[in-house]
């Protein structure tokens, strides 16, 4: 077999090997990025929204947040009129719900709630003397110019 044929034989195996090597390298990089993103997401899941009170203080809303005066709650409110465990805001199937928990009243946009209610951006939630403005993350926020920018700093993933 002449050297030309030998070279042809070598190239015959070399070319698919190189292609496979590049493919595997790209797959490896992609898998590594996927795992890193997954880990980052599990550590700090992105908030589903935020609550802002009259003083301008912002509370981040997780997937399931309990509001109340007790320190065991996810969002601790220091209002005297707020019960120990007062209300819950959670997300289910892309909808955010507000659920009163205590016998104390929960107001949504001024109306007293008797049960669960859907929340939208811009709603006002009243617990005790505290009025909280709701801002939800999600592709379509609506709202004024100041709103989305502030909420965006809470929203968004670190992927």
């Amino acid at each position: 077999m002449g050297w030309r044929e030998l070279y042809a034989l070598a190239v015959r195996y070399l070319l698919p090997t190189i292609m496979a090597a590049v493919l595997l390298r790209v797959m490896f990089i992609t898998a590594r990025e996927w795992r890193a993103a997954r880990r980052a997401r599990d550590l700090t899941p992105p908030p589903i929204g935020s609550l802002t009170d009259d003083a301008g203080r912002q509370y981040a809303l997780g997937h399931d947040s309990v509001l109340g005066r007790s320190r065991r709650c996810d969002i601790v409110l220091s209002d005297a009129g707020v019960a120990g465990v007062h209300a819950q805001i959670y997300e289910r199937r892309r909808t955010v719900f507000l659920q009163p928990l205590a016998r104390g009243k929960v107001f949504l946009n001024g109306a007293a709630l008797s049960g669960r209610a859907k929340l939208q951006s811009g709603d006002t939630v009243g617990l005790g003397e505290t009025a909280l403005t709701v801002r939800l993350c999600g592709r379509d926020q609506g709202g004024d110019e100041a709103g989305p920018a502030k909420a965006e700093s809470q929203c968004g993933t670190d992927v």
Binding site: V11, L14, L15, I18, M19, A21, V22
Partner: peptide, 10 residues
């Protein structure tokens, strides 16, 4: 380099 090698070899 691998891609370049592919080109050169072929």
């Amino acid at each position: 380099l691998l891609i370049a090698l592919f080109a050169v070899a072929s």
